[in-house]
């Protein structure tokens, strides 16, 4: 059993962040890449709440509130873009979406 000290929470957060990052790096499906992004955000929120708890302030919590809101908005817009892109290109594989390349 690992006791939940602050370092452990931070470690956990870093681990989640890394997993998310690898997801973004290695997957080709745009939607899964998006989920990896969300994972990274969640990791950040975890770190914030942990710090906030261990310092006794509530600033971290409030900040998480905003992160959640922004993440929601971002997801909505991002998915709308993906839908529009799919309609145009009939694909959501990232390496086929390279029309901006010279």
């Amino acid at each position: 059993m690992i006791t939940p000290t602050l370092e452990v929470y931070i470690l956990l957060s870093a681990l989640l962040f890394a997993i998310g990052f690898f997801g973004v790096l290695l997957r080709r499906n745009t939607l899964v890449i998006f989920m990896g992004l969300e994972l990274m955000l969640v990791a950040a929120t975890l770190a914030l709440v942990a710090f906030s708890r261990y310092n006794g302030t509530s600033d971290g919590n409030v900040f998480v509130f905003f992160i959640l809101t922004v993440a929601a908005a971002e997801v909505a817009v991002g998915l709308a873009i993906i839908v529009a892109l799919f309609r145009k290109r009939q694909t959501i594989q990232v390496d086929e979406l390279n029309a901006l390349k010279k």
Binding site: Y9, M35, L46, V49, A50, R53, N61, V64, F65, L68
Partner: peptide, 27 residues
């Protein structure tokens, strides 16, 4: 659950509601 363990009860529920409920559903 981790949030609950960190005594951030409101955030835990908001996470479930917004993230799990709305965002993942949208996904």
């Amino acid at each position: 659950g981790l949030f609950v363990l960190l005594d951030a009860y409101l955030l835990a529920f908001v996470l479930l509601l917004v993230y799990a409920g709305a965002v993942v559903a949208l996904f």
